[in-house]
Design a protein around this nucleic acid. Sequence first.
DNA 1: CAAGACATTCTTGTATACATAATAGTTGAC
DNA 2: GTCAACTATTATGTATACAAGAATGTCTTG
Lengths: 225, 225
Amino acid sequence: MSANTFHKLRDEIENGIVTGEFAPGERLDELQLATRFGVSRTPIREALMQLSAIGLIETRPRRGAVVVDPAPDRIYEMFEVMAELEGMAGALAARRHTEEDRLALLSAHEKCEAAEASEDTDRYYYDNELFHSAIYAASHSTFLEEQCMVLHKRLRPYRRLQLRVRNRMKVSLREHGDIVAAIVSGDADAARALLRGHVAVQGDRFGDLIANLGRREIRKPSLST
Amino acid sequence: MSANTFHKLRDEIENGIVTGEFAPGERLDELQLATRFGVSRTPIREALMQLSAIGLIETRPRRGAVVVDPAPDRIYEMFEVMAELEGMAGALAARRHTEEDRLALLSAHEKCEAAEASEDTDRYYYDNELFHSAIYAASHSTFLEEQCMVLHKRLRPYRRLQLRVRNRMKVSLREHGDIVAAIVSGDADAARALLRGHVAVQGDRFGDLIANLGRREIRKPSLST
DNA sequence: CAAGACATTCTTGTATACATAATAGTTGAC
DNA sequence: GTCAACTATTATGTATACAAGAATGTCTTG
């Protein structure tokens, strides 16, 4: 792909954000990042500019960049939109999927089943991404696929949080099964409805999410002076 | 808002792109832009970085930035997603709109009617944006509103193209009327369906769009040497 | 002892300089 | 005459330097 410094830096920092290394609300010091990555401030700034445009960080003039820390209602809105887009992807996938798409989807589903069976949350988390990516790809709308991937990334930290809820993995897997059936059988409406329900944080799940937001790792290592 | 140079430059260049001053496929020379705006290359680059992240321009390593020139099928995909998001906004608006929202929507609709009556395409084009913005706002989902605005901006050049089709303004206005009725009466499903149909470029409209793509202003002023 | 003002320091924002890759033009050879 | 290779120029990518604003800490005064 592109072997530019700022490009790599962007991915690096973005990754740091979605994995939680850079916690929401954390200040991103340009000089600090520059020395850490062994480059000057220039490519760091350019990477931050891009992340700012995507919405992963916020920059206030003369006051630096901070990792966005969306309020619960905003997180809810993001899931709401994600649900709609995934539903759309599912509906298109049901109509347009090829044999390859079908095999990729089934393969991803089986991996999720294995992960659930071994009760490996991290693995399930990873394979779950494969599963959803397979649906995006099967929609055969590259633009929709891109949009879904972007939003998926932004929601990654909160998605992870949700898996902490008891039995969520098992319920999620069951829903996956229904989704696969709908897509494979070409039932666009069902695929849309099932994916909407699968992704949205409705009812109790919203409460669970809020509760887990508080249980994250400590934001700022409380200064001990 | 933010009085930073690169911020203003970003808006300036972005505006130039959506208005067509910078045509699709056109190369954006950093030095040229820098001298034009009377600044150094640094803030120009930062502005371009942001536009690149949004997807308005493409940057190939060591080969500069060009305004994206999406293929017709990609434009179609973008309208497809836009239709879905607008449908969602309409559905939410039908359920959640306040008295203020209702008045704003009706006001925007009336402006569109006046523009259509005077057969002023440019004015209709502008008021049409107000109309759609009113729906986004009425959805009371700030995230959805933002997403819609971003996509709306990206599609602006092609939306404009569509108005060239005979009678499109009249048809569009009639659809607006139905949409308003659905939202005001609180019929979420109808609002969703109507907005989807209104925004999507289905059937003949896709053909019309393709045809008009060729009729744009000359991309590159053919060199006469 | 507390509160406000001033100064110092740190960080961001912009400009400039330098290095490197790409492109175009020219020259030479077949 | 055409094609290829080499050179020169131009533009991008990164580093560094400089300027300006914000934050913090200290000192003075009430």
